[in-house]
Amino acid sequence: MVSIDRRGLLGAGAALLASPALAQPRWPARPVQMLCPWAAGGGTDAVLRIAATLLERELGQPFNVVNRTGGSGVVGHTAIAQASPDGYTLGIITSEICMLHWQGLTEVTYKNFTPLGQLNNDPPGIQVNASSAYQNVQQLADAIKASPAGKFKASGTGQGGIWHLALASWLGAMGLKADHVRWVPSNGAAPAMQDLAAGGLDFTTCSVPEARAMLDAGRARSLAVMAPARLSAFANIPTLKETMNIDITAGAMRIIAGPANLPAEVKAAIEPALKKVFDSKEYQEFMNARGFGLVYADGAGAGQALAAADKALGDAMKAAGLAKA
């Protein structure tokens, strides 16, 4: 009795599954799952959710955002890379994918993905307490050079996080060792900015949008941004290039991607759609409201950006002694 029931159920299930598979004219023929390796409510989640909403409008199928968190991003990134490459499971990948494998935490690298479009890049900044004596980044740099190693304390994210590597790169460009400034690990940029305002730190190297509320409140000042050009939302903050002639291009990237070997028709459909999403009034308004950097690159461009970041971050991690063998 039980076996008959089960067979009946199996048959019914197979029939239900098979019917949409028979007719699959073009992608997307059914809802697409968008994986987010970071928790709901964070910046990456917000960017993906608005992009998914707008993609739905462009392509006429629901794009459902699913947060697959855990393992400091390893779980979600791995899930995107290992999804079946049929175009119905895509996701958002972040700069961490160019760091996790250097730390020996996963085998997955940017090469396991098909990048489809970069939607955002936030470069690191340099922020000090509002009452700090340093009026510009050159004064701060001189003071750091003159101080004994470990006297200056900086923060912005956890040990070995993206902003820690930005600091290491900056120190390296000044000819100092990566640990000349002591890194105080924090649980993200917001607690670091609070500690900066409470007088517990000398400076932070998180991105300017993350520091924005404290800057607006007059509790902190941003001395420089580590980017090739000034940010449109923060045009009064000079770049490190123009003040100290130091070129650092690493930043926090957000890229829509799928598993490797995506069919060409999927790429052909989604890449122009992502460009339209990026150019849409809603997306531009949203990103400007949050202060997130509007940087676009198509699939190939995003792939190059990932390759460059992978090398730069790997070098910085080796210099800071954070990479595993």
Partner: peptide
């Protein structure tokens, strides 16, 4: 100051 007190306010800030 845009500092979230907990996960709920973190979402609210967004």
């Amino acid at each position: 100051f845009g500092i979230p007190g907990d996960t709920i306010t973190a979402i609210a800030i967004g």
